[in-house]
Simulated assay, not measured.
Amino acid sequence: MTTTQPPTKKPFASSILLWMRNDQPRQTGMDHWKGPHSKIISATPGFDEYRQIHLAEHNPGLWPTTPGVETAIPADRRIDGVAEVTFRSVLSPLLGRKQTALAYKDEINVFRRTLLYAGPPSSARWYDVAVPGEKVGARALVYLRKREGVTTGAFRKRIGSLAGSLAGSGLLRELRTQVFMPWNEKLWDTPNVAHDNPADQRFHASLVLGFPDHAARAAFFESPEVASLSGALAPVVSAIHAYDVTDALTYVKNGKELLHYER
């Protein structure tokens, strides 16, 4: 891996993890989220970007087996999708209260569980790893759980080191990282939808990894470099869940609602 570091943005971002209702076909929920629900969210003022990350229904876990680390994604907690929201400023969430209330009401039509993970301003990192004109052909979404007893500072430092190694690898066309504040249900306590999130199931950071194609993604997770990175993470991380991303749809870009989503 090379060590050249690309330019980096530090946006104010949050993620909402989503589970589709299980009393109707999964695809029905995914289609509602992609269509009617997206229009409600996209109209929220104060967004710099709004992106839906759709995850494969069959998602056992892409991360290589690592001693002492949970890399197999438990079926009963397997996520269906993630709403990735980037705000224009730290005050932007205050602008969207009316539209957020509409989103609350629509959640019951599509989701059975929603969990909001947020970080303090500038805790996210968007790395400019792609050459202009390059497109992402395959993605993985990775969630990491801090090992009990590890300090937040030590965890953040290790995630920063991991991101730096990935950013300088020359293998990725997209790299986004978020380190979360402690989870708090009151940040997204929507009615009629579950928000159960036991302490031993919570996440503390995420990575979005973009690759030229599916073959490149598979080669990445099978590489000795990733095995080495995983070994370095093991002392501070108790779980690494790497999801197969089937689609990443952008509805708001550079502060403007798009007429049609972009992939």
Score class of each variant (00 low, 15 high):
Ile41Ser: 12
Tyr261Met: 13
Val110Pro: 00
Asn192Phe: 06
His204Ser: 12
Asp23Gly: 00
Gly210Gln: 04
Gln178Cys: 06
Lys34Phe: 11
Asn22Thr: 03
His214Ser: 15
Thr8Glu: 13
Lys157His: 10
Asn22Ile: 02
Gln5Thr: 05
Ala216Glu: 05
Thr4Asp: 15
Ala205Glu: 02
Asp247Gly: 09
Ser228His: 12
Leu259Trp: 12
Pro224Asn: 12
Ala232Asn: 10
Phe87His: 02
Leu91Gly: 12
Thr66His: 09
Tyr243Asp: 10
Val252Ala: 06
Thr8Ala: 05
Leu187Lys: 15
Pro7Asp: 02
Tyr117Gln: 03
Arg125Tyr: 04
Asn109Trp: 02
Lys146Ser: 10
Pro212Glu: 11
Gln99Ile: 07
Ile41Leu: 15
Leu258Lys: 14
Phe87Lys: 01
Arg77Leu: 08
Val236Gly: 06
Ala239Pro: 13
Lys157Ser: 09
Asn109Gly: 05
Val129Arg: 01
Leu166Ala: 02
Ser122Ala: 12
Pro120Asp: 14
Asp80Val: 04
Glu222Ser: 14
Ile159Lys: 05
Phe155Pro: 01
Ser38Cys: 09
Val136Arg: 01
Lys34Arg: 14
Asn22Pro: 03
Leu209His: 06
Ala138Gly: 03
Phe12Gly: 05
Lys34Ala: 13
Leu102Tyr: 05
Ala72Ser: 15
Gln201Thr: 10
Ala56Val: 03
Arg158Met: 13
Ser38Lys: 09
Ser38Asn: 11
Val110Asn: 02
Ser38Met: 14
Pro6Ala: 02
Ala103Arg: 04
Val226Tyr: 00
Leu207Glu: 05
Asp48Thr: 09
Glu70Cys: 07
Asp200Ser: 14
Ala43Gln: 10
Gly160Tyr: 01
Ala248Gly: 10
Ala72Arg: 15
Pro235Lys: 07
Arg173Ile: 02
Pro25Gly: 01
Thr152His: 12
Arg145Trp: 04
Glu257His: 14
Ala167Tyr: 03
Asp189Pro: 09
Phe211Cys: 06
Asn197Val: 07
Asp196Arg: 11
Ser169Ile: 02
Asp23Asn: 00
Gly133Leu: 02
Phe47Tyr: 09
Ala219Tyr: 05
Val85Gly: 03
Pro224Met: 05
Ser14His: 11
Glu174Arg: 15
Tyr104Leu: 04
Leu116Asp: 08
Leu209Phe: 07
Glu222Gly: 15
Arg51Gln: 08
Ser14Glu: 15
Gly119Thr: 10
Ala72Thr: 15
Ala199Asp: 15
Thr152Ala: 14
Ser223Val: 02
Lys105Arg: 10
Glu185Phe: 11
Asn192Ala: 09
Tyr104Val: 00
Phe47Asn: 07
Lys10Phe: 14
Gln178Asn: 13
Asp76His: 09
Val85His: 05
Lys135Gln: 11
Ala43Glu: 14
His260Val: 14
Arg263Gly: 12
Gly96Arg: 11
Ala167Val: 04
Val82Asn: 03
Gly133Trp: 04
Leu229Gln: 09
Leu162Gly: 00
Gln27Asp: 10
